[in-house]
Amino acid sequence: MTTVGLISIGVLQALILLLAAPLFSGFARVMRAKMHSRKGPPIRQNYLDIIKLMKRQEVISEQASWVFRATPYISMAAMLLVALLVPFLAVVSPLGAAGDLILVVYLFALPRVFFSLAGLDSGSTFGGIGGRRELLVAALIEPILLLVVFVLALLAGSTNLGTISSKVATGELPYTLAFWLSLAAFAFTTFVEMGKLPFDLGEAEQELQEGPLTEYSGRSLAIAKWSIYLKQLVLVALFLGLFLPFGSMTTLSPLGALVSVLAFFVKAILFYFVVAVLENAMARMRFMKVPAATWLALGAAVLSFVFYLANI
C-alpha cells in the first residue's frame, strides 16, 4: 500500500476509535441496565456526560503537581498512537514503520503509569489505592499478555502487527490448537485490561470512587474518561485485528474501507455484548482473590505455548 493510503487508513482508524469509543461504552451501560432489569440511560449518554463535564469548572487538589494535570492528555495521546498502530481496518499496520506488537504492549503501560502517578500525586486516599491496584493487575496480566504475543509472533514468524494480521487473515498462519488457545488467553487479558468486573480494581466505582479519577473534575475528567473509553475500544480493536481480521481490507479502496468499517462495528458490538454478559453475570471478587483468577489465563497461555512447541 502507498504511503498516502496508509496515512488515510491511519487517520480513519484514529477518528473511528476516538469518536466511537463513548458509543461502545454507552452500549455497555445499556446492556448492564437491561440485565439488571432497569431502563438505563440512552446509548448516547456518554457523549452528553463528556459535553457536560467540558463545561464545568475544574477543581484541582492542593497536593497536585503537573503530573496530575498532564495525565489525561498523555493517556489519550498514547491511546491514539496505538489506534494508529493497530491493524483493524486493513491487514497492515498503518504505522508499521514506527513499531511492532511489543511497542503496543508497552504503550498500554503509559496511561497506567501516569494514572497511578496521578492518583498518588493528588494526595487522595482513593487515588493512591486505585493506583496500586491497577499496577498489581498489570503485573499479573502483562507476563501472560507477553507470552501470548510471543506465541502468536512465533506462529507468524514476526512481531510486526501487519504481518501477523495478514497471515491470520489469509490462513497462512495455521488455525491450530495453539492459535485458539492463545486467542482465548488474549481475550481474557483484554477483558481484564478493559477493567471489567471482577477486575475493575483500579477504577472500582463502588468502593474506590473510581480510584485515580477521584480528584479529576470538569474538562480533565472528561478527557480522562474519554481516554479510558478509548483504551477499552483500542484493546478490542487490537484483539480483533490480530485474531479475527476477517473483513479487513487487503487492498485500499473506498468500498473495501466501508466493508471493513462495518465488519469492525459488527465484531466489536459482538465482543462488547459478550463482555457485558460475562461482566454482569459475575459477582464482585475480593481484591486479594484476583491473582488466583488470572491463573486461568496463564494456564491457557502456557498451554498454547506448549501446543506451539508440540506443533499441534
Binding site: 469548572q57 492542593e62 495521546a77 474519554w226
Partner: peptide
C-alpha cells in the same frame, strides 16, 4: 497526538468558570 486532547479540552472554553486549585482532596 497531544494536540488532539488539548484541542478537545479547548472546546467550550468560553463558557467555563476559571479553574480552582488549592482545594484539599476529597475525603
Amino acid at each position: 497526538l497531544l494536540v488532539v486532547p488539548l484541542a478537545l479540552g479547548a472546546l467550550y472554553a468560553g463558557s467555563r468558570v476559571k479553574t480552582r486549585s488549592g482545594v484539599p482532596p476529597w475525603t
